[in-house]
Design a protein around this nucleic acid. Structure first.
Lengths: 160, 160
DNA sequence: TGGCCTTGTGTTATGTTATAACATGGGTCA
DNA sequence: TGACCCATGTTATAACATAACACAAGGCCA
């Protein structure tokens, strides 16, 4: 969300969660409904700015007494992916709330810190143009972009 | 390899394979040896310009009568990754021969065709700079870059 | 209002990808 | 020769993901 410029730093995370859920409610009017279990999965994804695995979500739900099994979680995640409410980080087999409000939110790029495990979502138009240009140079038509840079975030560099 | 500008088109693939193996021999002097099973895995990876899964490699080896089991294949793949001889495509859980001779070969970017399943390796310095600049703007130090663009390659667009 | 269609969920089982942990064997060099 | 390193073999299991079928709730319209 726009206020979460440094997710590692102090920020009102309750606000992240409530705006994410509000955005989800707003998006899921009509036939695509934000049901109880989808909402629950989205809440769990938003419990931190760290990517979370499907089976972590499952464990989390089990602690709440939910009888959810893998298909429940994957169905909810697939729905949330389709709605652009979460991203999948391919290099980690994990999921993270979509923090972009832009239309191109799903062209996002990620900076993943290997120390604190935080994933910072960028939505850099320059970078996106550079990527599309590189593809175009090869006559390639791009549908989907996976851009995940791993390394050490600014906070962890300071800490070290 | 430098001659393989359009991997989908006509090209002397035997030459791809022999140069890849020659490059591997050259790189694996010293303590890091290109053993029989590592060489075999590399050959299988190079049988096409399509990414290949670890268990596909395993099946391929089984057909040759090899008693290889998953750890054998994963060990060989990890060795080849360390030596910069193959890449892992995170978005497909698959591996492909490294076709770059540059020092920065492992900063490569991939264009993956969802029709013909071909993966074209780019090594675009402009793109790499754009990626690093975007990270730097967030004070992020990059170790590893995953850039995988999926879509339709030039040949498949023509065919359609 | 009763049937039926769509959508979402429950449940069981299984498929796919990857690694842990320990044993074995073959060099090399002090 | 025996201690060590490296690679490989072997067994088992962890981690990630989906197929396939059953069922239930709500809309809709003849």
């Amino acid at each position: 969300m726009d206020h979460a410029i440094t997710p590692t730093g102090q920020h009102d995370h309750a606000h992240c969660v409530s705006s994410a859920l509000a955005a989800a409610e707003a998006r899921c009017t009509g036939t695509a409904k934000l049901t109880q279990s989808r909402r629950r999965v989205l809440e769990i994804v938003w419990e931190s700015h760290r990517p979370v695995g499907a089976y972590d979500i499952l464990d989390r739900m089990a602690k709440d007494g939910s009888p959810a099994k893998p298909p429940t979680v994957y169905r909810a995640l697939n729905f949330l992916l389709e709605q652009g409410l979460v991203h999948r980080l391919e290099s980690m087999n994990a999921f993270i709330g979509c923090g972009s409000t832009s239309v191109d939110g799903h062209a996002a790029q990620f900076l993943i810190c290997r120390d604190c495990n935080m994933a910072l979502e960028l939505d850099d138009p320059t970078l996106r143009k550079a990527l599309d240009q590189a593809a175009r140079n090869s006559g390639f038509k791009v549908d989907r972009r996976v851009v995940e840079l791993s390394g050490v975030c600014a906070d962890c560099q300071k800490a070290a």
